[in-house]
């Protein structure tokens, strides 16, 4: 039992390290996803007429909306890595448990999204004038929300892997599914930034539940999906 779990954790680490190494060498997250996310923040500023009170009020929602857009880009990139030359199929032929491959890809996307959030939070402080009142809540929310986004994204990314229209179908599938993450992360950040009187920790619980459900679904469904891709 413990040996199996250690093996699973080792394989998850291997796949995550592989994906992150590819991302580091290609510089997609740093060179494209992060600038894209910052650009969206600036565009929201224009869209809301650079009205400081409105921006401060809307900061949590705009922040997580931007992370959501970044999720679509990051997941599409993650899918493309496995689709090229049948790499995903080879990964499973190596004898690795599909759940481990799914866990590794989810972990890699989560790390990238966390990196995006780490850049965006100072971005909203500087551009929108936000102030962080509870750093711990902001950090825990960011970890829980990016994990949930990565799990749902990797699962639905596997659904569209190998499909010609995957770039258009993925947002249609992903955005409604991750709506609870957007709601919960926004509410929790409202508490962390002090823009609304809500209990942010209860929303973190919802994020944890969402993440657990999608990780469980992904662990079961990833194998059959990759066989069909």
């Amino acid at each position: 039992m413990w040996r199996d779990l250690r093996l699973l954790a080792g394989d998850i680490g291997l796949v995550a390290a592989k994906d992150l190494r590819i991302e580091w060498r290609a510089r997609t997250t740093l060179g494209q996803v992060v600038p894209f996310a910052l650009l969206v923040l600036v565009m929201f500023g224009f869209a809301l007429n650079a009205n400081r009170p409105t921006l401060e009020l809307a900061t949590p929602g705009l922040l997580w909306m931007t992370v959501l857009f970044a999720t679509v880009v990051a997941v599409q990139r993650s899918v493309a890595v496995e689709s090229t030359d049948g790499a995903g199929r080879m990964l499973l032929l190596s004898g690795m448990a599909p759940a481990a491959a799914f866990g590794g890809k989810t972990l890699a996307v989560a790390v990238q999204l966390l990196a995006v959030a780490v850049v965006l939070v100072p971005g909203v402080v500087l551009l929108y004038g936000a102030e962080i009142e509870s750093l711990l809540l902001a950090v825990v929310t960011s970890i829980a929300a990016t994990a949930g986004l990565a799990a749902a994204g990797s699962l639905l990314g596997a659904v569209v892997a190998g499909v010609r229209a995957h770039q258009t179908v993925l947002p249609i599938l992903l955005l409604p599914v991750v709506a609870p993450v957007l709601i919960a992360a926004t509410r929790a950040f409202e508490d962390a930034l002090g823009t609304a009187a809500v209990n942010g920790w209860s929303w973190v619980g919802l994020l944890a539940g969402f993440t657990a459900a999608n990780v469980a679904l992904g662990a079961v469904a990833y194998g059959p999906l990759m066989e069909e891709a």
């Binding site: 659904v159 499909v163 599938l173």
Partner: peptide, 29 residues
């Protein structure tokens, strides 16, 4: 909206078994 996405996956085309598996996962979500 999730179920509209399910029907979009059904309309993707391709081998019947492949479409069924993809759609089944979306159905579970």
């Amino acid at each position: 909206l999730v179920m509209v996405g399910y029907l979009s996956v059904r309309a993707l085309g391709g081998p019947a078994g492949s479409v069924s598996t993809r759609a089944a996962v979306v159905g579970l979500v």
